[in-house]
Nucleic acid binder design. Structure first.
Lengths: 343, 343
DNA sequence: TACTCGCGTCGAAGCGCTTCGATTGAGAAG
DNA sequence: CTTCTCAATCGAAGCGCTTCGACGCGAGTA
């Protein structure tokens, strides 16, 4: 591999000049720059990442902590939503690259990872996914003094920046949309209770938005939780639709259960949206790929990921003070909601 | 951050002694070792990754190239199967960690990534996912002289190691299983033709296995391709089941289409497995989560990922010569296949 | 007793880069 | 014509680690 000395020799300049051409930190004459650049191209020179990191204390690497929790049998745990993780990753990695950073992938499963990476200066900043309301990892992250961006909304951000989807706004928006169509009885088909118990807070915030708006829109709101298993889904749906005052609209905030929900609804002889309106809260592609395309409040995971990468880099550049950013909810009508039948 | 000098001072030894304690490359007396280890713990010393890389030319990092191809609008392309990618990642990252390596995440979308990483010595080895029959990237990888493991089966491995699932064996196994149950007319519901055209080779190999075994088992085999869209699925299924000699069993090698396939089948009034046997070829969790649990040949993506990580490390240690490893197919009966009705 | 051997430790060189003065020469200002 | 300024470049130090050769010393050998 060619070193900066090789390049310098080939271009007839000193190593420091090559360095300045590369970094742009000092003025270099056009002629010299051209010679250096030609030498770089000819030698296929790539700076040695380690040497650069050592000398400059910057790695141009972002560490990303993903919630890849494995079961005892080393299989992916059911409560981690692979699809959403990938959406985040698909947002983070390209944006980081565009800003000149590579991404080091760490998992939640490895407790030493954070210490190793910040202690060993393997990355300039951290992006932590799936941050819970009370997250054990935060004190360690804050203490490491490595700039960090949290995806999620902890109760105490420990002075770190956060990005998340405005689930509260999403809840309000869903109800407002349905209320506008005349619905007066709305049910949420929510995530399994393990998720609620994990206090990732997003489910709580969603619920809060749903309840708040329901109250002010005069909507009767009820809550059911379910896993993706068909029997559980059937139970949840019947909880929502049975009884003397059945819901006329469903808000589904559980993408794994979506297919089953639609299936159960159809099995009950209900047509969407004629007999029942359905609003999903999930990534766009999921909403589009259902048996019936669903009107949904898209969770813009990819966008959030990209935002996190941007915030990380901005923080590194000293252009950003720690703060919390919420990504606004918008509703896309795909035809699965309709005016409520006259009661 | 504490440096190795700090540790040396605290332990009353020289820096090189600390280094040897850490690496174990020279004998150190038990007493000295203990003193050094205490100092390391007290100072929370972590070696500076860049310095280490510079001095030793090793990074303890594996670079992983994932097929995160984005559309023009920067959204995830439909033909990349997010779930499978994650399974690979879930196999690779923990195993790499267990072997002392971190993982640097690169995407296919970034053409400079490979050069940057191998040229800049940012990683010790490469794992490339989703390698196609004729893969443009291979010459560059081979030329970079960075050890590499390919996930997939290129026509020409360029002297690199490969791991993949034995799709040929899977095809044979599926037919053998069905033939053993008395089925004489089997149809494959395969991946969309774009996948075939991309020549990832796995679809071809699967097909080859299906055909070979069909011939020798006296099974009439037909092929239909489909996307995940419901209308396309319906067309594919009717191609398989309509006409005078309808298939009595389906092999579905298209996980995205699975829910729709089952749905369409049910809509036609067919029960699984009584009226129609179904074998899926997909990851285990997908097969389990369908409306009807499916007998399947599980694609052990996670296992393959872990294997790739192991092979990468073994290669780095000089314990492994380049070669190709195929992971054997096994069939798990989940009750979606039954004896064929007497013809 | 003299000599060798190897264990345990140290010192120094060097990995490839960045960065901080210092230096040079050319043009502007006086 | 001298002095000052500033643009353009160089040299050297140093980032924190690994590793090689050297060295001291106690034990084994002759």
């Amino acid at each position: 591999m060619a070193t900066i000395e090789d390049v310098a020799r080939a271009a007839g300049v000193s190593a420091s000049t090559v360095s300045y051409v590369l970094s742009g930190k000092r003025t270099i004459s056009a002629a010299t720059r051209a010679r250096v650049e030609r030498a770089i191209a000819e030698l296929e020179y790539h700076p040695h990442a380690g040497a650069r990191a050592l000398a400059s204390s910057r790695t141009d690497v972002l560490a990303l902590v993903v919630p890849l929790r494995l079961d005892a049998d080393a299989s992916l745990r059911g409560d981690v939503d692979v699809n959403v993780i990938m959406q985040f990753v698909a947002g983070i990695v390209p944006r980081a690259r565009a800003l000149g950073y590579d991404v080091l992938l760490l998992t939640d499963d490895d407790p030493t990872a954070l210490r190793r990476v910040s202690g060993g200066a393997s990355a300039d900043a951290l992006i932590v996914m799936d941050v819970e309301s009370e997250d054990d990892r935060l004190p360690a992250v804050a203490r490491s003094r490595t700039p960090a961006i949290l995806i999620g909304m902890p109760d105490d951000p420990h002075g770190l920046s956060c990005v998340d989807f405005d689930f509260d706004g999403a809840g309000r928006l869903a109800v407002r949309h349905l209320a506008g169509l005349g619905h007066r009885r709305v049910a949420l088909v929510g995530p399994p209770d393990v998720v609620l118990e994990r206090h990732t807070s997003y489910a709580d915030r969603m619920l809060h938005g749903l309840r708040t708006q329901s109250r002010s829109s005069g909507v009767d709101f009820r809550l059911t939780l379910t896993t993706a298993r068909r029997d559980a889904v059937a139970a949840a749906v019947s909880e929502a639709l049975d009884g003397e005052a059945p819901a006329t609209a469903l808000v589904v905030h559980n993408e794994a259960a979506l297919p089953a929900v639609l299936d159960v609804v159809r099995a009950r002889g209900l047509r969407v949206p004629d007999d029942l309106s359905v609003v999903a809260v999930c990534p766009q592609n999921i909403a589009e790929q259902q048996a019936v395309p669903l009107t949904s409040i898209d969770i813009p995971a990819q966008h959030i990921g990209a935002t996190a990468a941007e915030m990380a880099v901005a923080t590194l550049r000293g252009e950003l003070e720690p703060h919390t950013r919420l990504v606004r909810a918008t509703l896309t009508d795909r035809g699965s909601t309709a005016a409520a039948a006259a009661a």
